[in-house]
Computed example of a mutant assay.
Amino acid sequence: MDVTIKITDREGNLHEVQAPTDMAMNLMELCKAYEIAPEGTIGVCGGMAMCASCQCYILNDVELPEKGDDEEAMLSEAFNVKPNSRLGCQIQITENLEGLEIELAPEY
């Protein structure tokens, strides 16, 4: 089953994408698959919660997994962090994400 996720890129363009729930993908990998951010500007650490290049802002009220310690630590050091910031690499694509709206944080 696919879920629909709306992603606003760093230029302010809205992308409505279909995300498969059966491929163990996360939001960062989804952005890479759809080339929503230029290569080399997202998922730099490979999804290890070590670089914050996949930081995004959660724009609506969708049930997400709790932040882990690694994600909390990385966000405490990242730039442009807001109360609704999450690391895309730490959010697995599941059926719960249907209708999720996110915006990619600025690169710097």
Rank of each mutant, 00 (worst) to 15 (best):
M25V: 02
I5M: 07
E72I: 07
Q90D: 07
N80T: 11
A24N: 15
A37N: 00
I5V: 13
I42N: 03
L30Y: 02
I91L: 12
L27N: 03
C56K: 05
A37S: 08
I5T: 04
H15E: 02
N26K: 09
T8S: 12
S85T: 03
F79V: 04
E107F: 08
E101V: 09
D22S: 14
T21L: 06
V81R: 13
Q92D: 09
L100Y: 11
M74I: 10
L64H: 04
D2R: 09
T8Y: 14
G68Q: 12
M74K: 04
D9M: 01
Y57G: 01
S53P: 03
E63F: 03
M74F: 05
G46C: 00
V62H: 08
P20C: 04
E103G: 10
I58P: 02
A78N: 05
R86A: 00
M28V: 07
E63K: 13
M74P: 05
C89K: 02
I7C: 04
L75N: 09
E29I: 06
Y108Q: 14
E66K: 11
G88Q: 14
A37W: 00
E63W: 07
P38N: 10
G47I: 04
A19Y: 00
M50W: 03
E63M: 12
D69M: 13
V17D: 04
M23R: 15
M50H: 08
M25E: 13
C56M: 15
P106L: 12
C31H: 00
L97I: 09
V62M: 07
H15I: 06
M25I: 04
A52I: 01
P38T: 13
M28Y: 01
L64Q: 05
A49N: 11
G88L: 10
P65T: 12
L27D: 06
K6Q: 15
N60Q: 11
I42G: 00
Q55L: 07
E103D: 04
L75E: 15
T21H: 03
V44S: 13
N80R: 13
I42R: 02
T8E: 14
G46D: 14
P106F: 10
Q55D: 05
R10N: 08
H15Y: 06
A33Q: 14
G43C: 10
